[in-house]
């Protein structure tokens, strides 16, 4: 194995460890023809993807395609970058060019499925996910795309079942833990969300999205917000109807003073539900910064 090959292997290993900044530093040390070989472009685009520097990802992918010729992975990176920049039609072109070269590539199929989900073409997205699942049923990206599809359709129950199954297959995968936490939070299961996000951060302490989600979940798990848990769990509509129904029933039963007291408590609860999350967020942020 040559020295540049070893250097590129080191970069790949750094990327596996989610150390994208160090991978970029290592890549910047490449000189001459090694810096412009296909694998170097692929690794540079992957590192920039991890850093979410989408404009640079697109530039690198285009440069790589220009200098080393068509390549499915670089086309996929270009598609991903254009999607994040809001150029959905351009992203589709790039992904289809990639799929024309490697139609059985699970990563490309899932990228295209996610793009279709994002623009509301959920039927096509489902077919693409099915195709990817036929090739690699337990691939983490297939689970993520399945989850995205259910989530985008507003089907939170299915999304939570998928997240649970994903976590069952990949118990330590940070993305599985993150999705498990995200849908638990969406459904008002604050404790479960906090636990999952905490585990995701423990598995991958370098990911800013996981850290941010864990912080947000800490806010909602604060003792001052404990009284609001039933509201988060039941939702506004059900809580409201239960409260107003109780007040009306007490009035109808002739218990006006009790109804007035419940009404007053309900009003206080409503005010607390508006004020408390902002207050606690400031409290936690202040403590976190000090």
């Amino acid at each position: 194995m040559t020295a540049p090959d070893r250097q590129l292997d080191r970069v790949a290993a750094l990327l596996d460890l989610n150390r994208a900044e160090e991978a970029m530093t290592e890549l910047s040390r490449l000189a001459g023809p090694e810096a412009t070989q296909r694998r170097a472009f692929q690794l540079r685009a992957a590192a920039l993807t991890d850093l979410q520097r989408w404009s640079a990802v697109a530039d690198t992918a285009r440069q790589g395609l220009g200098e080393t010729g068509p390549d499915a992975e670089l086309l996929g990176r270009l598609g991903l970058a254009l999607r994040h920049q809001g150029d959905h039609a351009g992203a589709e072109r790039a992904l289809l060019d990639g799929l024309a070269r490697e139609p059985q590539q699970v990563w490309l199929l899932c990228q295209y499925a996610d793009l279709c989900t994002m623009v509301g073409q959920t039927g096509k997205a489902a077919q693409l996910v099915d195709r990817a699942a036929a090739l690699a049923p337990e691939h983490p990206l297939v689970w993520v795309s399945r989850f995205q599809l259910a989530y985008a359709a507003g089907d939170d129950r299915t999304a939570q079942r998928i997240a649970r199954d994903y976590l069952g297959r990949w118990p330590d995968h940070p993305a599985a833990l993150f999705l498990h936490g995200a849908i638990a939070g969406e459904r008002g299961q604050v404790g479960l969300a906090q636990q999952s996000f905490g585990q995701a951060v423990a598995q991958d302490p370098t990911d800013a999205d996981y850290a941010d989600a864990a912080w947000q979940s800490r806010v909602y798990a604060h003792p001052l917000l404990l009284p609001l848990r039933p509201l988060y769990r039941l939702g506004v509509l059900r809580t409201w109807l239960i409260a107003v129904g109780t007040i009306v029933a007490l009035n109808v039963a002739g218990l006006e003073p009790v109804a007035a007291l419940v009404g007053l408590l309900w009003l206080g609860y409503c005010v607390w539900s508006w004020v408390a999350p902002t207050l606690v967020r400031r409290l936690v942020l202040g403590r976190w910064r000090s």
């Binding site: 959905h88 039609a89 351009g90 589709e92 289809l96 793009l115 073409q121 096509k124 195709r131």
Partner: peptide, 13 residues
């Protein structure tokens, strides 16, 4: 492959 036909228009959104 029908699935690999472009369906996203630039002015869709």
């Amino acid at each position: 492959d029908e699935l690999f036909r472009p369906t996203i228009s630039p002015t869709a959104r």
